[in-house]
C-alpha cells in the first residue's frame, strides 16, 4: 500500500519517526560525549557521530536508499572530492616548514614573540599586560 502511487517509493511514516528519534538521541549523545574529557578522542568521536547522522538523513530522509543508483554515485563523488581537497591541503599545512630554510613559525607569531620578549624591558604598562613575566 505504501508503494501505491506512481511507482515511486513512499517511505513509511514509522521509519521516518524512528530516524527522527535516532537523530535526536545522537544529538544528545554528541553533546554528552563532548562534556566528557577524552583528550585526543573528542574530535574523532564528534565527527563520527555527525557522519552517522548524515548517513541517516541521506539514506532515509533523502531516500537515496530507494533512489536511482546514479544519484548515490553523485553523492559519493562529492564526498570523495571534499576529502581530496582537505587531505591534499593538509599535506601542505600540517607539514609546513619541513624544508629547513622555511621557518615553521608564521611571521605574525614571531613578531608577537618578539614584542613579548621586549615587553618586560620597558616595564610599566607592558608588565601589567603580562602578569606571568612579573617579579
Amino acid at each position: 500500500m505504501d508503494h501505491a502511487s506512481h511507482g515511486h517509493h513512499i517511505t513509511p511514516k514509522s521509519l521516518l519517526i524512528k530516524v527522527f528519534g535516532s537523530l535526536i538521541l545522537l544529538t544528545i549523545l554528541t553533546v554528552a560525549v563532548s562534556r566528557v574529557h577524552l583528550g585526543a578522542l573528542n574530535v574523532p568521536v564528534a565527527i563520527a557521530i555527525a557522519v552517522v547522522k548524515m548517513m541517516l538523513v541521506v539514506t532515509v530522509f533523502m531516500a537515496v536508499k530507494w533512489d536511482n543508483k546514479v544519484n548515490a554515485l553523485v553523492i559519493g563523488l562529492s564526498a570523495l572530492f571534499v576529502s581530496i581537497f582537505l587531505i591534499f591541503t593538509l599535506f601542505d599545512t600540517a607539514y609546513r616548514g619541513d624544508l629547513s630554510n622555511v621557518d615553521r613559525v608564521p611571521i605574525s607569531d614571531q613578531q608577537r614573540q618578539q614584542s613579548a620578549e621586549m615587553a618586560p624591558a620597558d616595564a610599566g604598562a607592558a608588565a601589567s599586560e603580562m602578569p606571568a613575566s612579573g617579579h
Binding site: F88, F91, D92, Y95, R96, G97
Partner: peptide, 18 residues
Amino acid sequence: GFLVWGHHMFVSGQSAIS
C-alpha cells in the same frame, strides 16, 4: 586534474612533502 593543483606552488613555501 584535481590532484595536482600544488604544482603551481612549488616555490610558494608549501611543505616539501606536498
